[in-house]
Design a protein around this nucleic acid. Sequence first.
DNA 1: TTGAAAGCGTTACCAG
DNA 2: CTGGTAACGCTTTCAA
Lengths: 326, 326
Amino acid sequence: MHDVAAHAGVSRGTVSRALNGTGYVSAEARARIEAAIAEVGYVRNNAARNLVMRKTWAIGFVVHEPHQLFLEDPNIGGILLGTNAVVAEADHQLVVLVVDSDDDAARVSSYLRGGFVDGAVLVSARSHDQVADAVEEIRLPAAFVGHPEGRPAIPYVGIDNRAAARTLTTRLRDTGRRRIGMLASALDRDSGADRLAGFRDALGPRFDEHLVVADPLYSYHAGVSTMTELLRRAPDVDGVFAASDAVAAGAIEALRSAGRTVPDDVGVVGFDDSAWALRCNPPLSTVHQPAAEMGRAAARLVLEQLEGRTPESVTLPTDVVWRDSA
Amino acid sequence: MHDVAAHAGVSRGTVSRALNGTGYVSAEARARIEAAIAEVGYVRNNAARNLVMRKTWAIGFVVHEPHQLFLEDPNIGGILLGTNAVVAEADHQLVVLVVDSDDDAARVSSYLRGGFVDGAVLVSARSHDQVADAVEEIRLPAAFVGHPEGRPAIPYVGIDNRAAARTLTTRLRDTGRRRIGMLASALDRDSGADRLAGFRDALGPRFDEHLVVADPLYSYHAGVSTMTELLRRAPDVDGVFAASDAVAAGAIEALRSAGRTVPDDVGVVGFDDSAWALRCNPPLSTVHQPAAEMGRAAARLVLEQLEGRTPESVTLPTDVVWRDSA
DNA sequence: TTGAAAGCGTTACCAG
DNA sequence: CTGGTAACGCTTTCAA
């Protein structure tokens, strides 16, 4: 920059102002500076710039469990693209950080603490999590995609689980299913409780507590066991709302074992539109997550904090995709 | 750091040496410094550190065409994980840069030029590419995953296309196929030419040039048109080596239109083990790319350049996965 | 084994 | 509108 200033016959201060478009610079000086920059082949040193500005112009995008997510979850890519679009628009750079082991968690945490980024989007973090701890402790502007419990300080982007569950269940009912059960999961979490609430909403007076079987986990195995139990309680069940696609996949397996066909004997719906949904036979009717929009919303949440505001969490509507399982 | 030094009763220089484990620091001083760090809650300012060290301890991972890759390609996740593992091991941080538009390409290029990273892994870059231009121009230590033409200055991690094609074709022959054709693609590129060479190797004297139909592109549509042409030339064809899974998918469609069944009438094999492979009906026999190992190798290539060496490009062996299409 | 001091390349304030 | 100057927080000689 010193050289540029010399070539242009101005001072470093003027070059800096010209570069940043801040303060006054005469058109003539600006022209000479631009010529000098080209001539000298100048590129600005960002370490120095970051040092004095106390900003890095970078936003972290932290992904946990990448084995699962990067390789299988079709939502993660959309979230990433959405976040990237908004962050780029704001002239920041998105830095994707992969947490693939405990070592990685430690490394990423210290990376965040190290001031390498001005903010962070946290995807699918668990509540008790080294990375989230670091974010909270250093008060790094951040947002979750998803809604971990017990992190009131960090806003999140969630989806309207209750409305989606309601839509799904209503359709199940409207397509002639008479005995509709639910395989609930994670009732101690918002997502699980809301999905049950939506199910209940849709059935109204016809809701029968007896037809809800719960399990703590959103897993394939949970689906197998809860479906088995549901069949025991109500052999004439003809519709099932599973709290996630994985649960639905397990349920379909259990139904097959019990000699029922899907969707003829029993209609099954899932939740998430994850990789399970298309892998199932028949493919699942399920709730599609607006991945890109979730990513964009999370990015906006972080950017707003960078501007000094304290935005509220966001809840996004979802689409239901009807495939063959119901 | 000033405060730490004061609390510990030493100078800043000593604190710095203690922190970096460089130079001499007495055990006593080190203990006092550590206590002071905890007391003050010190975390080092990396912008300042990077400024003086002229290093960022970050490696870029540049992904092009993410719509395609992030959402569909099962290899990209594995490559990312492999690269991350090696880079993390070397105490660097992987920074994933997504190129999703021309604007992104410009932004990522200037990010690389801006000295935010010490090196970069380039995934699936096209040869004529703004990002690769930038990398070459500023001589950033880098490595390609894949083998773009015309970038001799940048080493790459490729796979042994010829050997894989040989294996695939041999197996096709050994399972009783008598009239084996090839749907070749991109013969002007290494990958395309090598796959044809391997095909030729395997058939030896039985190779019949007449049964090779070529197209410039590795695409589904290329598969449809070349398969149609192959059927015209040799209606009795009973084995087909398609140069990619997408081509194979197109070929299967063309065969179906022509009333042939796969694999009974005609055995089909693809290449890449991409998302097409499992989506096809029947699922494709194809060549699986060692994604994680490719990522690791690319990371090593970059790290070695950081140490001042000039490593050679790497060619990795592949596995053939036999599914139902042949 | 330690301390002092000289940068590293910017930005930002303050006179002019 | 512009130039000078003081930080920004660290590493790294060089003496002691």
